[in-house]
Design a binder for these strands. Structure first.
Lengths: 211, 211
DNA sequence: CGACGGATCTTGACAGTGACAAGATTGCAC
DNA sequence: GTGCAATCTTGTCACTGTCAAGATCCGTCG
């Protein structure tokens, strides 16, 4: 657990700027507290899950008082909501750059591996303020990207129903990503690159050649 | 929150009713506290998630003191571990009764819908005592059931690798179940029976006819 | 029949947490 | 510069999980 870089040692250096009376090495205003807290939160969530998240702990890491985070996120729920919104925005961007449903799936899995904390929080509605505006718009954006990826599948490939193909692809990618993150596929994947494994799954689902 | 002050007479203890003390509001011994707490916990988790679980609240619902649950489950973690173990045992039983990978998938999804609390907790390793003996054996049992379902797929259906087919099926079922429980497929599924939808997905994955 | 040991439950305490309110400090627009 | 709003602090409260020590009950063995 790397402590945050600043703050350093309190009174190790005797010959410091003389005009600063006694304490207060750190300025009253943190400068970028919001970002700081988000970063620390992502770190905690990534390796201990959202349940282990403590606002007071985040405040301590950032070197601010216990109530400081509340001003930026209002709530624990607010913090998680902000993370989820950021996650959906990132995912939307990632997916929109993909052409073809297969590639979108691969990107979905890659996103989950590169942003595990975001990914985990995004699918825990009970921890979020689902009516939050920023979250809702980011969600809509991601949903749109996904839908357009589904639409790009040639008609003859996708069975009777495009929507069904979308659900299938999403389920496959989401299930694979989730099981991967919860270490349920460690044995099955072994040394191989998870993305390659997933590509093989995608080809089982959409049997044709093509992109 | 409904106070489930049931205290339904446990039929487990045979000769009990004769000399039950009438003066006390509740007997010193609850009678079936472990089961009571488990039931209440499942209820809470099913509609608020594991994060909302409070041992003290469960104790209140069961009408016992705040420290009573600890004797049966040691920890919050212990309680969740017990639930997960029960879940894996149930799942193993369910899967072992299926013939064919497709049917196993359907049963997997059904299990998730019928036991959402179990299902959710089973895949949150960070909340569990993963080295717990009961949990590990139940997990092994379920894993065995799943593996045998994979093995039952005729060779010509399952592409190059049985293990890959297993991962595909598991990912598809797990993803579908997860997205279903988190209400991400409400629109896509609509009025249809989720099991029917999933059957269609299964047929996309394993294109042949057969069982 | 009676005592005793273990299982079950209670009471009390402690540290940690999220949330709120009220005050201190700072930067910025005017 | 002055005032104001954003930012951060301090103090507090109810609640939680966990531990320790005691009370009560049960089956069992003498």
């Amino acid at each position: 657990m790397p402590r945050s870089e600043e703050s350093a040692d309190p009174d190790a250096s005797p010959d410091r700027g003389a005009d600063s009376p006694e304490s207060l090495q750190r300025p009253y205003h943190h400068g970028d507290l919001r970002r700081s807290i988000l970063a620390a939160a992502l770190e905690v969530i990534a390796d201990q899950g959202p349940a282990a998240l403590s606002l007071r702990d985040l405040a301590r890491r950032a070197g601010v008082s216990h109530a400081a985070p509340a001003h930026h996120f209002r709530d624990r729920t607010g913090l998680l909501t902000a993370i989820a919104a950021e996650g959906y925005a990132l995912l939307a961007e990632t997916l929109s750059a993909a052409d073809g449903l297969r590639e979108a799936g691969v990107r979905y899995v890659r996103f989950a591996r590169e942003h595990p904390a975001h990914f985990v929080v995004m699918f825990r509605p009970e921890l979020l303020r689902t009516q939050d505006l920023e979250l809702a718009t980011a969600q809509a954006l991601a949903s749109h990207s996904l839908r357009s990826a589904v639409g790009s599948v040639p008609a003859e490939e996708r069975g009777e129903d495009a929507r069904l193909a979308g659900v299938a692809a999403w389920s496959l990618a989401h299930g694979f990503a989730t099981l991967l993150l919860s270490h349920n596929l460690d044995d099955a994947v072994g040394e191989r690159d998870p993305e390659d494994v997933f590509r093989a799954l995608g080809e089982m689902l959409f049997r044709s050649a093509g992109s």
